[in-house]
């Protein structure tokens, strides 16, 4: 394989692995369920995108590359949908984001449309 493609592939794999670990730390350390979704989003976009792109360059032009591109497409399409459904379920279940309580208590019109 060309040396430039090798360097690009391992660079992408390294960046993807770093973003995977960063997203995992975010899932553990962030204070709220809505902010933890941000950490999971880092795993789903930058982590998976970097690692799978590096593997695609490693594989060359074969059927493996098409399968990896399909996996990236499915994850990029389904991850925001699942996160959106989970956020709506959490809001409907009574979980409030941090910092959302104060204007609601003071003025009574913080997010009164979603309180039915």
């Amino acid at each position: 394989m060309d040396i430039a493609l090798e360097i690009l592939s391992w660079g992408l794999l390294f960046v993807g692995s770093a973003f995977l670990v960063i997203g995992g730390i975010g899932v553990v350390r962030l204070p709220d369920v809505f902010t933890r979704m941000h950490g999971a989003g880092i795993i789903d976009t930058m982590g998976v995108g970097g690692v799978m792109s590096g593997l695609m360059i490693q594989a060359g032009f074969t059927i493996v590359t098409i399968k990896l591109a399909l996996i990236i497409g499915f994850i990029l399409y389904t991850s925001p949908t699942a996160t959106h459904a989970l956020a709506r379920a959490a809001l409907h279940g009574g979980v409030r984001p941090r910092g959302d309580e104060t204007p609601e208590d003071e003025s009574g019109q913080g997010n009164s449309s979603s309180k039915t």
Binding site: L20, R36, A40, I43, D44, V48, A82, L86
Partner: peptide, 16 residues
């Protein structure tokens, strides 16, 4: 919801 989110992330990591 934290548990559902973590299990979802775990499934994505299983794919990787």
């Amino acid at each position: 919801y934290d548990r559902i989110l973590a299990v979802n992330a775990f499934g994505t990591l299983t794919v990787v």
